[in-house]
Design a protein around this nucleic acid. Structure first.
Lengths: 133, 133
DNA sequence: AACTATATACGAAGATATTCGTAGTTGTCA
DNA sequence: TGACAACTACGAATATCTTCGTATATAGTT
């Protein structure tokens, strides 16, 4: 008896998740106020979406107060990981290398960020050498 | 009077694009035969999808033969780039660094691939130093 | 010429995603 | 307490995605 994995969030759902990760546990109103700035929609639209996300298990809620308080079910990094893995499979035949290449070409990356990435890679390479001993 | 950019392909559409990139220009039957192995569906499903993709501008077709021959409108790399950029914006706040990190964690990458990525990064870093002179 | 195999076109069903209006409930405050 | 503001629940309209059945056309074969 295993629990179903959370389904891939849709575009609108991901927008809400991003707000919740940023703000932490929040009410519908708080989420709506943030979203409304960049993408004007009605309050009940946000409400309905969050109710659906709750049904799907993407978010959980605390109903003890009149205004329910919602929080994400999974940490940001874990969801990002899933999304990347999904894109990897759907568009890159599973090749992380190709995806990384495209990502670095798709957007200018600051020298500091490049250095961090290089460091991560060097760590992975060191780990490989370690393992093969 | 500018042409509309090709919309983001849906899951089923991307699966078809992948076959077309792999095989090159192909008929519906050829595409369907490949897809049918991994995801059994009817022939007319593939046909309909490809007709819609043609309307959207995702693929073009040569109607001179009885069996139309379809080809992708954009090269694989360009579409991959768009998809990565899209995910970057929707889930990573535009941070390529974060996305790369997640990609490398999401999937084991071979030492050879890691080396290639490292090389790309070193090239980008060299280019940065060059530019800042 | 009739039959068969293989095409395309098209409509439509069913599922999912997104949007919002309306109804009804609850807390606040003058 | 009565009016108002804010909240949830719910139904439904609209759009999009995915699937397939049916109608029709065309090429090849006997």
């Amino acid at each position: 008896m295993r629990k179903k994995p959370a389904p891939r969030p849709t575009d609108a759902e991901l927008a809400i998740l991003r707000v919740l990760w940023k703000l932490g546990a929040s009410t519908v109103r708080e989420v709506h106020e943030v979203l409304n700035k960049t993408r004007p929609t009605g309050y009940t639209t946000a409400l309905k979406l969050m109710q659906i996300m709750h049904e799907k298990g993407l978010i959980s809620r605390d109903e003890s107060a009149r205004a329910h308080v919602y929080r994400t079910s999974l940490p940001e990094g874990q969801t990002q990981q899933s999304l990347v893995r999904d894109l990897l499979d759907r568009a890159f035949g599973g090749s992380a290398q190709q995806l990384v290449m495209r990502a670095l070409q798709a957007k200018k990356t600051s020298p500091e960020e490049l250095a961090e990435i290089r460091q991560l890679i060097e760590e992975l390479e060191a780990k490989n050498r370690e393992d093969s001993k």
